[in-house]
């Protein structure tokens, strides 16, 4: 199969996945819930009196990231594992579509959906900020891009976990744990200095194995003058590619 025809198939599967997610009732409910959460954050920020602009932007950006992550993880389970369980995957695999192409299409579809969620929640957040008569911070869009990159990494690993775990819930929990560990990784340095023996080795292993997601927390660092580095971008692409390669390998070995 040629590269162009492969890309065409990936494109078709991705947009089909995206369209399906938009049609689901869960999407509408999620959008309403997102708006309520973002609007509620405005009430919280009002308590900070003269720091409302910063507080509202910070809470909104965290909510955008969490919503993208949660939606992406729910979507991963329905994008492939549920299709495998419900045997609807045969509709694709019965055609001359290699499994790794199918997986690439599904992953891209989930990432497009995540980007769409990030866009919608960002528009909602901007509306809430503007209704309060405040300015949108200059780093807002960079922070949303960082959140999207972070979610894309976790999504790639979530697909991998969905192949090695026994249920959707386990894959969801494992991906959530990776998100948490990814933030803790960069904090391990000072702890390692104080640790010794097995404890040190364990911390060292964690710092080597788990991706450092704080690199993409631009909502935390962009204002202080720490933009996304090329190294961080390269690392994100490597992680996504590696997680995809292992997932594709596992998918190719899977028997239905």
């Amino acid at each position: 199969m040629g590269i162009i025809s492969s890309l065409k198939i990936i494109n078709e599967i991705a947009f089909n996945t995206f369209k399906e997610s938009l049609k689901s009732r869960f999407f509408a409910l999620f959008a309403i819930f997102a708006f309520i959460m973002l609007y509620a954050s405005a009430l919280g920020s009002m308590l900070s009196i003269s720091h409302e602009e910063r507080v509202l932007a910070d809470i909104s950006l965290l909510l955008i990231e969490i919503m993208c992550l949660v939606y992406a993880l729910f979507h991963v389970s329905s994008a492939l594992t549920r299709e495998i369980q419900e045997k609807t995957i045969y509709l694709i695999l019965s055609r001359p579509v290699p499994r790794h192409i199918c997986l690439a299409g599904k992953e891209l579809g989930v990432m497009i959906t995540t980007a769409f969620i990030a866009l919608i929640t960002s528009i909602m957040a901007i509306c809430v900020i503007k209704t309060r008569g405040l300015d949108v911070p200059s780093f807002f869009f960079a922070a949303v891009a960082g959140a999207f990159l972070k979610t894309a990494i976790i999504t790639a690993f979530a697909f991998l976990f969905s192949f090695v775990s026994t249920s959707d819930t386990t894959a969801f929990v494992m991906s959530g744990l990776l998100y948490v560990l990814g933030h803790i990784t960069s904090e391990l340095g000072p702890l390692m200095e104080k640790a010794s023996g097995a404890k040190y080795l364990m911390l060292k292993a964690c710092s080597i194995i788990f991706p450092n997601l704080n690199l993409y927390s631009l909502r935390e660092t962009a204002e202080a003058g720490f933009p996304l580095s090329i190294g961080a971008l390269a690392a994100a692409l490597i992680w996504i590619a590696a997680a995809y390669a292992i997932s594709a390998w596992l998918f190719s070995k899977k028997e239905f």
Binding site: S186, E187, F210, N212, G231, A234, I238, A242
Partner: peptide
């Protein structure tokens, strides 16, 4: 590749 990604990421990371 994952380990290389981590190496690249950690070498360019400075916590503020």
């Amino acid at each position: 590749m994952l380990l290389a990604g981590n190496y690249i990421a950690n070498s360019s990371y400075v916590s503020s």
